[in-house]
Computed example of a mutant assay.
Amino acid sequence: MKYPEPISKLIDSYMMLPGIGRKTATRMAFFTLGLDKDQVQEFANNLISAKTDLKTCRICGNITTEDVCNICADKNRDQSTILVVEQAKDIMSLDDMNGYNGLYHVLGGVLSPVDGVGPEDLNIKLLLNRLKENQHVKELIIATNATPEGEATAQYLAKLVKPAGIKVTRLAHGLAVGSDIEYADEMTLKSAVLGRREI
């Protein structure tokens, strides 16, 4: 059956979301039609606000509404460790476990020559500048995902940072190979942070 154009376009929009196929997108579109106009307007406003009102922290690359995120601005956090993640969403997962109270740095992805992603495409230069400017940093914890690209990125960072005399560690057991930090439970994440290893 061919739907009217506004519904077809809404279905297509929902299908842009990761993991959403045609059936689920169709269900979501018809659910949206059942909402009242104010709810739909609020939903639309939230989408626009998320796109226009957020920016990246100038220090770590986390998402924020300010120039500096609340984590970088918090002087009570341990200034001697920086935990490096692929994406800002990984910070949420790791910080919620309450097992780490240091700083973070968002790479914005991982090295992937196949996809054309090299060191210049990631926030590596920003990280190296941070390490030069902040003499308090004693340890860099690399928390890239346990994928071939994540491992290659970790090794690359370790080679860059070790000559500066900063201890470089990697999240250890707890995270299954090929899994994403975002989907790990609290105990698995805590175990991975506490069991990190030097690389």
Rank of each mutant, 00 (worst) to 15 (best):
A176C: 07
R170K: 12
H105L: 08
E133S: 08
L175A: 10
T188V: 12
D185F: 00
L54F: 11
N62W: 05
D53E: 15
N145T: 08
M187I: 06
P6V: 02
V193W: 03
E186S: 10
S191W: 00
L107G: 08
A29V: 03
M28H: 04
P163T: 06
I181Q: 10
A176W: 01
G99K: 01
K2P: 00
S112N: 15
G109E: 11
A73N: 09
L140W: 02
V68M: 05
D53L: 14
K9M: 03
D38H: 05
N134R: 14
N98R: 12
N145Y: 02
G118K: 13
I181F: 06
Y3P: 01
S93C: 03
D36T: 00
T169A: 11
R58H: 10
M97L: 08
D180L: 02
E42Q: 14
S191L: 12
H105P: 09
V193T: 06
C60L: 08
M92C: 03
I71K: 08
K75G: 03
E139K: 05
L194S: 09
T147L: 11
G150P: 14
Y104F: 13
K190V: 01
G108A: 11
G102M: 08
I63V: 15
K55M: 14
D121G: 01
C72E: 06
T26Q: 10
T153S: 14
C60G: 06
Q39A: 15
G118Q: 11
I91N: 06
G102Q: 08
M92E: 07
D96W: 00
L35Y: 07
A146T: 13
P4T: 05
S80W: 03
M28Y: 07
G34R: 08
G165N: 09
L157W: 09
C60Q: 05
T24W: 00
L83H: 06
